[in-house]
Design a protein around this nucleic acid. Sequence first.
DNA 1: GTCTATAGGTGGATAGAC
DNA 2: GTCTATCCACCTATAGAC
Lengths: 191, 191
Amino acid sequence: MTEARTRILNATRELFLAGGAEAVTMRSVAERVGVTATALYRHFENKDALLRAVIGAGFESFGGYLYRALRGSSASERLRLSGQAYLDFALEQPEMYRTIFMAPHPAVVACEETDGPHQSSTFHFLVDRVRECMQAGALRADEPEGVAIAIWAHVHGLVSLFLTGATGQTEPVFRETYRRSLDRLFAGLDA
Amino acid sequence: MTEARTRILNATRELFLAGGAEAVTMRSVAERVGVTATALYRHFENKDALLRAVIGAGFESFGGYLYRALRGSSASERLRLSGQAYLDFALEQPEMYRTIFMAPHPAVVACEETDGPHQSSTFHFLVDRVRECMQAGALRADEPEGVAIAIWAHVHGLVSLFLTGATGQTEPVFRETYRRSLDRLFAGLDA
DNA sequence: GTCTATAGGTGGATAGAC
DNA sequence: GTCTATCCACCTATAGAC
């Protein structure tokens, strides 16, 4: 029924993940699908609607990564898995990570308005993980919000520096850097 | 003598700081200066040369901020002032910060090739501050490079989240967040 | 050094035939 | 639903007159 719509969406996502939002033009998407640019307007109102659909799916994907961390059997395990999920998403979908967290495209803002504030829901998820760690005695009692910001900033900073090439590291080396750096941060947060 | 060149550079910098690299077009610069776009080619080879000049000045400005931190009278004071200088630069020249550290424009790469690696020299500066703190007994003995990455990632992460609006904080509130978050990190790094 | 005129490219979007 | 033809906006850059 809307199979054409799906094919267009896939082509857009592929172009987007390969070259970012600027690689997505009505012409490039159309060429990849095998139709002319004008045909796309039968399925999407305009380019912005196309980008919003792809980025919205990216938000959902990120949410899925985080959600899996809830499988952990203890508060500290769930927090640890959250950090791992964050890293996995960033390394497996770097262009999506860049768009959502590093260079907010106008379409990202539009997504937040229609689907609710994704970025702040990420923050609230982390605050919940931190709070339950404090209640379980795995983290020293402190303001959960402040500690959550410190953790988020830390993982986001590490990932950003890696993705822009500032660390000059390969992915396996960076994974180790990520682990050790979080250990250093938690050395000051642990109970 | 090269007064025209200076006026062009100023106009470019103003446009750049207001709207980023994409706000800089030969037409917009020319309009701001009060000439036609073609006149600019008498003073700069092309648009890229124009951007490189502005971004190169941004790098120098950032270096100046860091350099002032060396006025501190002790190792730990110099490290503290470095963190403050980093924050000041990011908040006073957000668009320049964004360009240099968050969304490496092709012109940034070009600057690094001609003027030397600025990003890695920032890292080395920080490693030096960390190392002298360890030697002075102000930081626990550890790998200086790993600790420097942790600190850099932390400050960069905080600043990035603020500049993208993810924290939802005002600047004065964020300055306090920045201070407290660094305190939390150093709680695990202090001797 | 600055102008006008112009070439040449990219990209979003619509009209109307099929 | 998809096509061709087309418009419009905006961009970098050059040639040659003044």
